[in-house]
Design a protein around this nucleic acid. Structure first.
Lengths: 121, 121
DNA sequence: TCACGACATTCGAATATTGTTATGTCGGTA
DNA sequence: TACCGACATAACAATATTCGAATGTCGTGA
């Protein structure tokens, strides 16, 4: 299946949009545009319970929006390199647009406040 | 609220994506890229029951994705001119990408077959 | 006025999604 | 080995979404 064809699969596209159809997950995506983050960062920046943060990240992962890797005790999440051009463009436009929103700005502030050398305590 | 600001409202964006997070509604949007259509066209082209077609169109309308106008007995739907640049770009990219999919092609074939002079009988 | 067609809405059952609490898993460390 | 912290998963109740069947609304034409 070509890259272009993958981009256009209707079922895949609906999963992609469904995953983005939630405020919390949109805010997670916005934070991830600042780079790799572990679960505890989302808990702190977005005020999520640990299981909830984990589950929302799981939704984004099954939709192919993010990837994760383990490093010691921590699991780091990052935006997945999108398989298709459509998803890539959508995500990029979204992140660029969101960076100006007040809600998102505050999320980022809280993020930076908790991302020092001792970030995950 | 400026155009750019409207584009970036997190709640609004989540509604937008949520409305697109469904195969049927994605196919409706794809069909609408061919121009204004009335409810009976969606019933025929997508094999939807009348109440279901009406309801899905209602979801797209409350999310600001489509607009409608009545003409005699029929109600015509069209893609709404998006208030914000982000939504506009997302929709345009989506529609362009979908036009090549097999599922969508077949939808369009069925659409054209039922869109003659006696389209709504 | 009545009947009909096109569409919208309501209702109810099935299903899916949500967030919390409790528990399980896996690395790191003693 | 045992314990602890970070994260994932399970189980549950609350809520939301889904679709079909039935019903309501509105415009048209007799």
């Amino acid at each position: 299946m070509s890259i272009a064809a993958a981009a256009l699969d209707v079922r895949q596209a609906s999963r992609f949009f469904k995953a983005l159809g939630d405020e919390t997950r949109l805010r997670i995506v916005a934070l991830l545009s600042h780079g790799e983050l572990c679960v505890c960062h989302f808990e702190a920046a977005l005020g999520l319970s640990q299981p909830n943060a984990s589950r929302q990240l799981g939704v984004l992962r099954s939709a192919g929006l993010v990837e994760s890797r383990r490093e010691g005790s921590w699991v780091y999440y990052r935006l997945a390199p999108q398989l298709d051009e459509l998803s890539r463009q959508q995500l990029q436009a979204l992140v660029a647009a969101f960076s100006r929103r007040e809600v998102i700005k505050q999320d980022v502030e809280r993020l930076l406040a908790t991302r020092g050398p001792d970030s995950c305590r």
